[in-house]
Design a protein around this nucleic acid. Structure first.
Length: 109
DNA sequence: CAGTTGACAGTCC
DNA sequence: GGGACTGCCAACT
């Protein structure tokens, strides 16, 4: 690949259609690398120019520290979400008490 | 130039 | 089902 690793990651993320998501591992696999962390690092640095919220963890959770921001995008794009059951009226952390429905939202080329 | 760090993943307990 | 440990790769100090 002639592009830098970072550039390739941005291309993959930019290729993810609205309403769909892909895991870091999937993106890394597309690049032929297994560095899921490397992908995450690129998003941390160059992710400002791409829909980073479409790239999530294998857990179905958005990037650390940006759960609420990502949630806004998901609700806006209609991305399938799975809210954690709350058996109590305790504080409901929108930023962390939800997970993406990877089974339905996972993007596959 | 070597070690540390980090928007992670997979496996084991 | 959830927590802990290890493995990966690229950028930063």
């Amino acid at each position: 690949m002639q592009l830098d690793f970072g550039g390739a990651v941005l291309l993959i993320v930019a290729d993810i259609p609205s309403g769909r998501v892909a895991t870091y591992g999937d993106v890394a696999a597309m690049l032929g690398s297994r560095g899921a962390r490397a992908v995450g690092r690129i998003m941390a640095t160059e992710g400002s120019s791409v829909p980073w919220w479409r790239v999530v963890r294998s857990d179905g959770r958005p990037p650390a520290g940006h759960g609420l921001v990502a949630l806004e995008h998901y609700r806006d794009e209609g991305t399938p979400l799975r809210w954690l059951a709350t058996d109590d009226d305790a504080e409901f952390d929108e930023a962390n008490d939800y997970r993406l429905d990877l089974a339905a939202a996972r993007w596959r080329p």
